[in-house]
Structures are given as structure tokens and as C-alpha cells.
């Protein structure tokens, strides 16, 4: 498995990703989402890095992931902003305090993600890496 990739089921599509810790897991989730929405990941700008804060405390890493991805989907859909990078101040299995670095969306997303689901979502540890797959309602 790559660090992040897309997959599809009968009616849905989703992203699979992994990370050596929660910070990397969350970062790769955002990269996977970019791959699905825009087909590629942009480079974060070197200077002038507009960003939006993301602070969330939940019941587990699944809860953090769904809310993080939902925030990125909303940025793309409602504000025309693509998350180009993430500056993480604190990350664990229940909490993420970060800034999402944004760039203008290069084009409309390739697919209309309407919601991020908890369907069969469970963060698992395997060979020292955290892994998860998130199904998106499209």
C-alpha cells in the first residue's frame, strides 16, 4: 500500500492512507483527498502561506479524520481553496491542532464529495504504522 491512494466500491469512492504516527496519518489523509478531488497534490507556497486553523478534540482518531476531511471538502466546495499542506502543532489519537495551508483550487473538484462517512472506519496499527480507509459520499 502506498502512503495514500484512492479506491472505489459499488456506489462509493474513498481514500486509504497510512502514517508512522497520527500527524503523518492525518497529513496523508489530506493528500489522499487531494488526489481524489484534483488528481494531484500541489506544492505549498514558499512565501505568503494563507492558512486556516483546524482545532478538533474528539473521541478517537476516526472522529478526528472525518472532521479534518470534512473541513477540507468544505474549503474546496464552498470557498474554492485546496489544502496544499498542513502545519501540525499537536496531534494524537483524539486531538489535532493544526493550520491548513491553502491555495486557490486549480479547477472544480473532479467529483462532488457530499459527506465524509464513518462507514467501516477504524484506524488500525500494523507493522508500526497506522492505517485507515475513509469512504466518501459522492
Amino acid at each position: 500500500m502506498k502512503s495514500y491512494e484512492t479506491f472505489s466500491t459499488t456506489a462509493d469512492t474513498g481514500i486509504r492512507f497510512r502514517g508512522r504516527g497520527h500527524a503523518e496519518l492525518y497529513g496523508n489523509a489530506l493528500r489522499g483527498l487531494n488526489l481524489l478531488l484534483f488528481g494531484r497534490n500541489p506544492r505549498p507556497p514558499k512565501s505568503k502561506r494563507p492558512s486556516v486553523p483546524f482545532r478538533f478534540r474528539g473521541d478517537g482518531p476516526e472522529n478526528v479524520l472525518v472532521n479534518l476531511l470534512a473541513a477540507a471538502v468544505a474549503l474546496a466546495g464552498q470557498e474554492g481553496k485546496q489544502v496544499a499542506g498542513v502545519e501540525i502543532r499537536y496531534a494524537d489519537g483524539r486531538r489535532l491542532d493544526a493550520r491548513l495551508i491553502t491555495v486557490p483550487c486549480p479547477r472544480l473538484p473532479r467529483i462532488d464529495v457530499k459527506a465524509v462517512t464513518y462507514h467501516n472506519l477504524r484506524v488500525r496499527e500494523m507493522n508500526g504504522r497506522l492505517r485507515a480507509a475513509v469512504v466518501l459520499d459522492v
Binding site: 465524509v116 462517512t117 467501516n120 472506519l121
Partner: peptide, 23 residues
Amino acid sequence: VASDYIETFRRRNLARLKLRDPQ
């Protein structure tokens, strides 16, 4: 609406429920 209430139900009830699928 669906996303908001899945979050609300989760906050209130997840810990006491045994679910095969969190959805």
C-alpha cells in the same frame, strides 16, 4: 444535517453502544 447528527449521536452515545459499523 446527516453529518451534523452523526457527530452529535456519536458524542452522546458511541461509548455505550456496541456497533459492528460506526455508521
